[in-house]
Design a protein around this nucleic acid. Structure first.
Lengths: 335, 335
DNA sequence: AATACTAATGTAAGCGTTTACAGCACTGCT
DNA sequence: AGCAGTGCTGTAAACGCTTACATTAGTATT
């Protein structure tokens, strides 16, 4: 009936005829406890189904063994994949994952408001653009932070060279003879979070000049990193009198959405239009989509490991820049 | 330099010339504290940047304001979507979300092993089949649990009628005149987690008999709820001499993967084969995929709200069965 | 004016750990 | 025999809150 209070370290100590200190040491594998005592304590703990109370450990030790994973949204393949990878690595390292959705337009901001930061040992930021006040709060908290996908002053980061990526993708297209290339960016995605998209666009623009491509403004339209966004963006792009012969989408999901839009307009890929995406989403191979792979899973894992290292050694570990590679499949061809 | 110890409730109390008890009451909005005092305390707290230490609150109050969201995997649209919805609702309700990946093949099982359960006020299970020992552990912990997608004895659940779903999808196909319908299930998905897939299959089988459809065993092949899985399953299905004229895939992602496979074999949808999926994934509209919608987002939200209610009133709230609806688009047609 | 409430605040005992320090029983050395 | 060292264990003070209970002052009731 009464959900019988679960046993505490004291119960175990009493039952095993030792002090709580010894139980604490024994159960955590610390040295200086006789093998025989340890075994006895473990046996008692098992029998009593003793589980240390995390809150009490935290309060006493100051360590929570949990890290906050902060994301602007949970929607879309990118975020869930990175998060999954980070969580897995963190679990392996003995940490729990507290997930926090901190929409940027949420003016208050979960991050600043709540006392979450006092409850975690570290923070992983996934593609989070921080307002100054949030960055400051985070910095002042003095807990290790690693950012994924975006370099943020003062924190370690795992990222790619988005500018180079934009350039490379475009130059692939240019190399195939395309002069008019449309771009679907991620501008709409997050009002305060232009950065990734902007950098890729900067790379594209550089290539545009370098290869003397058509420079019209209406060749760039905003998506939101989703298939639906890509679909709609493509429709808009195709309203142009002179249709682009190639398309660069800043994510594979948008690229596939655009592909579907193209098809709905009666266009074939790559016969009528070449498409290149970014990510190397698992479905891209099925589509035969040419893309710039960025190994999203490893981003998440690397960041977690970086954080784990910071948590242990606490001296600053540098940034990691992950390589991207062009994977040429059948969605792009010479014009 | 020294990450200057952040201020405690004691600091605030001293600065405001009141006792810690009053500060505690004031900051938590409890009654019985004079407006003037409250304002003064709030002002001091603000100035000192005081944030209560969650571990200490938890230890003292016994409530952690966090709930564990337990999933077998984080991969795939379904899980990330449900999780996102739950997290959002929980945040709104003042709870943090601890995410726990408890792969079933992980014999030990995070759930049983670690003292996670002592650190949370509630649990949301997303499509988790529990071993008996895990269910027992959970039950013994006496904390509220709600299960999504699967009814589990002893816990509240938010789910759909998977058997009916399997029947309805099949009868839609049968109604269009199809006699040979292939099925892509989710068997491979999780070795211990056949249940959802099995129930849908049972519904399908019932319809198969009811409508006198072709009954060959090789009309049912296992996918893993992903596009890639659907693609491969479709390839396998099509090795059959007498090809099915219609396909039921237990998720939209698999359906689309199958669609791509069909195309790679030179088949058109729905001319050569009709396809129906399950979920109403956002991309399904773009494809024109006929599907049984199950409003995944609302599942996550409803479950969270159910849990919130349990957390408050603690009397047993019943189960919720969410409606599913057939959405007919252009991927199915008369044979 | 004495009594009974009520509202605001304070006191202090937990909550269940961790950990610095002390203590004790040996062993081995001089 | 005395002493230092070592290995194991116990004592007790934190950790930073919440909360039952006590106290005080002020107001209303008779």
């Amino acid at each position: 009936m009464n959900p019988q209070k679960s046993s505490t370290i004291g119960d175990v100590a009493a039952e095993a005829n030792v002090s709580v200190a010894t139980v604490s040491r024994a159960l955590r594998g610390l040295p200086n406890v006789a093998e025989s005592t340890r075994r006895r304590i473990e046996e008692v703990a098992e029998r009593l189904r003793y589980q240390p109370d995390p809150s009490a450990s935290r309060l006493a030790s100051g360590k929570s063994s949990t890290v906050a994973i902060i994301v602007p949204t949970l929607e879309g393949w990118y975020f869930s994949t990175v998060m999954a990878a980070s969580t897995t690595a963190l679990t392996k390292g003995g940490y729990e994952s507290l997930i926090i959705v901190d929409a940027v337009d949420d003016s208050a901001g979960r991050l600043v408001d709540r006392s979450v930061l006092k409850g975690v040992d570290g923070v992983i930021l996934i593609n989070m653009a921080l307002s100054d006040s949030k960055r400051e709060t985070l910095q002042r908290s003095a807990i290790p932070v690693v950012s994924i996908g975006m370099k943020i002053e003062g924190f370690s980061a795992v990222s790619i060279d988005d500018v180079a990526l934009g350039f490379e993708a475009t130059s692939h297209l240019a190399g195939l003879g395309h002069k008019t290339v449309g771009v679907i960016t991620g501008l709409k995605w997050n009002p305060f979070q232009f950065e990734v998209s902007d950098r890729r666009l900067a790379g594209h623009m550089a290539a545009r000049s370098h290869f003397s491509l058509v420079k019209d403004d209406d060749l760039v339209v905003g998506g939101d990193f989703s298939m639906v966004g890509g679909y709609n963006a493509m429709l808009k792009l195709m309203e142009r009198p002179e249709r682009p012969s190639a398309l660069l989408a800043f994510s594979d999901e948008m690229a596939c959405g655009a592909w579907l839009a193209a098809r709905s307009l009666g266009l074939s890929v790559p016969e009528d239009i070449s498409i290149i995406g970014v990510d190397d989403h698992p479905m891209s191979e099925l589509w035969g989509l040419t893309t710039i792979a960025q190994n999203v899973t490893s981003h998440g894992g690397l960041a977690a490991e970086l954080l784990l290292k910071l948590l242990k050694e606490s001296d600053d570990v540098g940034d990691i820049e992950v390589e991207t590679t062009l994977i040429q499949r059948s969605s792009t061809r010479v014009v």
